[in-house]
Nucleic acid binder design. Sequence first.
DNA 1: CGAGGGTTTGAAGTGCATCAAATAGTGTGG
DNA 2: CCACACTATTTGATGCACTTCAAACCCTCG
Lengths: 246, 246
Amino acid sequence: MKVSPKLDVPGLKQGHFQIHDILMFEGIDASLLAAFEVASQHRHVAKGTVLYIQGDEAEWFHLIQSGWVKLFRETIEGSEAIVDVITRGHLFGENTVFENGCYSYSAQAVEDVELISFPTKLLKDSIEKDPKLATNMLQSMSRYRLQQHREIEHFNVQNAPQRIGCFLLRLILDAPEAPVTLHLPYDKTLIAGRLGMKPETFSRALAKLKEATNLRVHGSSVTIPSVSILADYVCSHCSNSFPCEE
Amino acid sequence: MKVSPKLDVPGLKQGHFQIHDILMFEGIDASLLAAFEVASQHRHVAKGTVLYIQGDEAEWFHLIQSGWVKLFRETIEGSEAIVDVITRGHLFGENTVFENGCYSYSAQAVEDVELISFPTKLLKDSIEKDPKLATNMLQSMSRYRLQQHREIEHFNVQNAPQRIGCFLLRLILDAPEAPVTLHLPYDKTLIAGRLGMKPETFSRALAKLKEATNLRVHGSSVTIPSVSILADYVCSHCSNSFPCEE
DNA sequence: CGAGGGTTTGAAGTGCATCAAATAGTGTGG
DNA sequence: CCACACTATTTGATGCACTTCAAACCCTCG
């Protein structure tokens, strides 16, 4: 079941995102939307900037317009666990509203980032007023939950090259066949961490993937000559086949 | 932050569960609770019974009173992926309400099971009426989401014996020190599958765990002489330490 | 142009999977 | 109640994928 151009997931539109594009706000009263729009802030954030730290009080949640953001937790011994590495169309920080009001992980811009920020307080208050907003959020969390289930399943079934390919496929849910070019974060070690592998393994796995699917990599941009070839290679052992949705 | 005796997570009470014990129903109007209670059904289900199949229309969601339930998906090639293996205090099937109204995986009793079932329709209707119910569900889904994040992190950081230990620890969140005895499902292959390992690996890993933490296993019951020793062994490489909550 | 960090490559080690076979444990029918 | 058949579990031997350690390379930025 393809969920049309509403976001919360990557890559379905080319232009700038508006509040209307967010799945969470689908079908919400124009007046409430306007309130969010008024309260929102557009921000440009330079590469390397730490947006917030795990434990900070959560004042804002964010929608990424462009660039890459790393979500991570610090382990006791000082190393870091990468929770996610996300890009345009992704929302983050919104879940703090149902937790203790603090960010449960830190966030850092790993490329120059453009984002729209909304106050969490407004969201919190609005949920209690508009049941539609609540059910929307339940729906998108539910979707996220399924995705995570798949991710755990993938861990058991996919090898390193396939996991990289799967990560790439998730970035392009729109263009089913023509060659696609994607922009990755400069530091590919991040993706390695996101996928639970070491940088060396990532490097070797990417080489294998290039050979198997004719991928081309130039710096931080990746060109996929044929999405279907990549999908065949990636999804052969999964219980879901390509568009990897329902 | 310890969340008092409300459930949705295992093991915090000894007696029978009531609707009041479910986190999701905390703070809900007595009249609405009564409606759920009236509509509920207590069921005894024999070991091996399939409760529902992936794709079935979801009429009920369930709270486990005792026994073990396996949640699983069938892969294309006919093998099955174990989504979860759960026991007393766990809720399942409730998330179908925000999805397409069908179960997204199958469920089977792997031991004799006692459960209370509630109609999904009532839940669906009630969410739209009572915003408190919606926020409760958001809260518990959010909690679940954090748990899954941890689980993904664990995959990268824990070895097989530690993963088994971690599974055991999650069953006993209440008794911090005294020796504890747990009841596992008869077929331990299930737990192996749940933890993403093969039966052979499970057997060897359990042997290592026994040696390292003085665990005793008699058939389907496991005795942990010291929870803290087990926790030390299991959690040494994690970003969260023992109670592994917030 | 040179320093530093990201990336690749090589060699060796570790952990889990796989295949195969032996053993223990369970449920059945005699 | 016992013996048998069947399945779960254990154990051993081997292989593969990823990790680790180390060194070389390359790209970016000052």
